[in-house]
Amino acid sequence: MKPWILGLTGGIGSGKSAAAEHFASLGIHMVDADHAARWVVEPGRPALARIVERFGDALLLPDGQLNRAALRERIFKAEDERRWLEQLLHPLIGQEIASNLAQAQSPYAILVSPLLVESGQHRMTQRVLVVDTPEHLQLERTMRRDQVSEEQVRSILKAQALRDDRLKHADDVLLNDGDLGHLHQQVERLHQFYLGLRGGQP
């Protein structure tokens, strides 16, 4: 039977990566949308050629890889450039995710994406799990992990889907306000529940 797809999302510093890793350690096939976004612009892939054609060689690093920082800078200031890039990349990222999910051998597979709701990627899934964390913990964890200022974290939080929007799309919510052991217990409980679902629905 074809595995059903669980969408896993959460704001920055919510612990969604730690949750995803634990699902993976239980034998669940996992696809990370961020990785797919990186693969589609690897050297030799058509998307990179199109980006260079539009923005010039200045966006390449000496080894031929895409200079992400330069690209971010470029589209940050220009709405139409950002839209052009999204129209180029979103379908390719979608294809990359779909072909990777199609390789899943586990009873269900997971699509991890910080922008699951905003990007419309939730439409590729049968069920959505949101890892939710009180904002003060998100701030603390992200500042500690990325060595960035509170101001920077707040601006990232603002750009991501509002917590309420994310929660509106959730079929399940994992409240991550304890330690890693507590997170793992909740993942294992959900995993047992998911194994009993057909097509992601009880």
Rank of each mutant, 00 (worst) to 15 (best):
residue 76 F to V: 00
residue 45 R to E: 12
residue 17 S to D: 10
residue 41 V to M: 03
residue 47 A to Q: 12
residue 109 A to G: 05
residue 34 D to Q: 10
residue 112 V to Q: 06
residue 177 D to T: 04
residue 17 S to Q: 04
residue 109 A to V: 06
residue 133 T to L: 08
residue 176 N to D: 02
residue 62 P to D: 12
residue 67 N to L: 04
residue 128 V to S: 01
residue 3 P to I: 02
residue 146 D to S: 11
residue 139 L to I: 15
residue 168 K to W: 08
residue 201 Q to G: 05
residue 149 S to Q: 12
residue 155 S to K: 15
residue 127 R to M: 03
residue 178 G to V: 09
residue 12 I to F: 06
residue 82 R to W: 10
residue 80 D to K: 13
residue 73 E to V: 00
residue 34 D to L: 10
residue 95 Q to F: 07
residue 196 G to A: 13
residue 202 P to I: 05
residue 171 D to G: 11
residue 10 G to Q: 04
residue 153 V to H: 04
residue 135 E to D: 00
residue 40 V to E: 01
residue 124 M to L: 15
residue 111 L to T: 05
residue 59 L to S: 07
residue 6 L to A: 12
residue 171 D to E: 09
residue 186 Q to Y: 02
residue 134 P to S: 08
residue 16 K to S: 10
residue 77 K to D: 12
residue 184 H to N: 07
residue 181 G to W: 08
residue 71 L to T: 07
residue 120 G to S: 03
residue 127 R to V: 01
residue 126 Q to E: 13
residue 162 L to I: 05
residue 96 E to Q: 15
residue 163 R to G: 04
residue 45 R to T: 11
residue 187 V to T: 06
residue 57 D to R: 15
residue 62 P to V: 05
residue 114 P to Y: 11
residue 3 P to K: 07
residue 179 D to N: 15
residue 31 V to P: 01
residue 187 V to A: 04
residue 129 L to P: 00
residue 35 H to S: 07
residue 98 A to L: 11
residue 130 V to S: 02
residue 54 R to L: 07
residue 39 W to Q: 13
residue 98 A to G: 06
residue 24 A to T: 05
residue 112 V to I: 09
residue 34 D to I: 09
residue 185 Q to H: 15
residue 199 G to V: 03
residue 164 D to H: 14
residue 170 A to K: 07
residue 119 S to R: 13
residue 37 A to I: 06
residue 15 G to N: 08
residue 34 D to P: 03
residue 49 A to Q: 14
residue 157 L to P: 03
residue 3 P to Q: 06
residue 108 Y to P: 02
residue 198 R to T: 14
residue 93 I to T: 07
residue 142 T to H: 08
residue 34 D to W: 10
residue 188 E to Y: 07
residue 161 A to I: 08
residue 11 G to K: 13
residue 59 L to C: 13
residue 176 N to L: 06
residue 185 Q to P: 01
residue 65 Q to Y: 10
residue 65 Q to V: 00
residue 155 S to W: 11
residue 48 L to N: 09
residue 165 D to S: 13
residue 199 G to A: 08
residue 160 Q to Y: 11
residue 29 H to D: 06
residue 186 Q to S: 05
residue 114 P to F: 11
residue 115 L to Q: 10
residue 14 S to D: 00
residue 188 E to L: 05
residue 141 R to D: 01
residue 145 R to E: 03
residue 138 Q to H: 11
